[in-house]
Design a binder for these strands. Structure first.
Lengths: 197, 197
DNA sequence: GCAGGCGCCTACCAACCGGTAGATACGTGC
DNA sequence: GCACGTATCTACCGGTTGGTAGGCGCCTGC
């Protein structure tokens, strides 16, 4: 069928399904039928469902971190502008693929083993972000506060907006081009106001 | 066993389990074993799992709305103070029972039928909140912006912080008494800054 | 030209899922 | 005492789950 290797197509399909419906609600058969193979072919590439979950989680986190790193390197020195450009950079893949964040948000439900695995993967980036915020607060470029909790709240806001499409529906938002632009700009303004000194 | 009627104990246990692990990942046997009865006794009180889900969702939404309504009635006229007191009021039950918000957040994953049911239940409160925000923006008491999206972002922030305990762990937060106070105050400051004109 | 590995398959299995059928224990009114 | 409604139980069913055992075709190296 597709020229992309089976293993990659499995990871793609699993990311979408896990993110949309939750890991436990998705069976190996579901994933296999999307990919176009039999369940046993999944178990050929991944020894168990748990291993597949880990691989999907790993890739999702890697993609997100890569996008954010690129945005950081491309942005100027001002922390508000930097956060702004991170949000814009993350916004595109998240909107195009709402399941990406949905999966990561589901981590809390999974085995502690998966959680630990992902936490180790992201730990250095988190400490980096925290010390960066701390430093910018100290020199007056950001509102004072606990850098860890501030980061968590920004993350919670972006993740919630990016994943809870149902939430946006209930407040009358429509996902056309204009709506997307409006959502992105409102999100930027919200975070800018929340973080400004 | 307990003096509380079986039906209530079922709803309690189901709320905790659904919120913690997700609806699909929790079996009727899981709930029954927590309650201390057999699965068939659940099906005596609720005709099906779907009906149980609906009842749990209904009660969770009702509890939250009641808490928020009480906070609104007890607060002064200034919108920032009002939102402040809502956050404080919601904070207590959410922290004591993180599964409460977790369940509501899971709605997006459930059947459209459940979603519609809950949306109808909450619709009047949402429109109320939106028109209130609109009015306060018009008279300069709140930062200008799309009231629906602003409300959604506040909700996303609070919900994310209230449910993703894993997220708070990774930024080094500890859930003792001092940590709770700190978290609540940081959240209040964050939202106040984000909404102030 | 054939041995061997690779990718995927069919055919199963034990465990578990939500749900049904029917029996049992326990009041309560008549 | 006995019929009736309530609340719970045991026993079971069809379907689905994650996972195993083993075979089939195809390419490649020798």
């Amino acid at each position: 069928m597709g020229s992309t290797p089976t293993r990659e197509r499995i990871l793609d399909a699993a990311l979408d399904l896990f993110g949309a419906r939750g890991v436990d609600a998705v069976s190996l058969d579901d994933i296999a039928s999307v990919v176009g193979v039999r369940k046993q072919s999944l178990l050929y590439w991944f020894a168990s469902k748990a291993e597949l979950v880990n691989a999907v989680l790993d890739r999702a986190a890697f993609e997100l971190v890569a996008v954010m790193d690129a945005a950081i390197r491309a942005s100027g020195p001002d922390p508000l502008d930097r956060i702004d450009s991170i949000v814009c950079a993350v916004f595109r893949p998240v909107v195009r693929r709402p399941t990406l964040l949905g999966l990561i948000r589901e981590v809390g439900r999974l085995d502690p083993h998966h959680v630990r695995h992902l936490a180790e993967r992201l730990a250095p980036h988190i400490t980096d972000a925290r010390s960066y915020l701390e430093q910018q607060m100290a020199c007056g470029s950001l509102r004072m506060g606990d850098p860890g909790l501030i980061a968590a709240m920004v993350y919670a806001t972006v993740t919630g907006i990016g994943t809870d499409r149902q939430l946006l529906d209930t407040v009358g938002w429509v996902p056309d081009a204009a709506g997307l632009r409006q959502l992105r700009d409102q999100l930027r303004a919200f975070l800018r106001a929340a973080l400004a000194p």
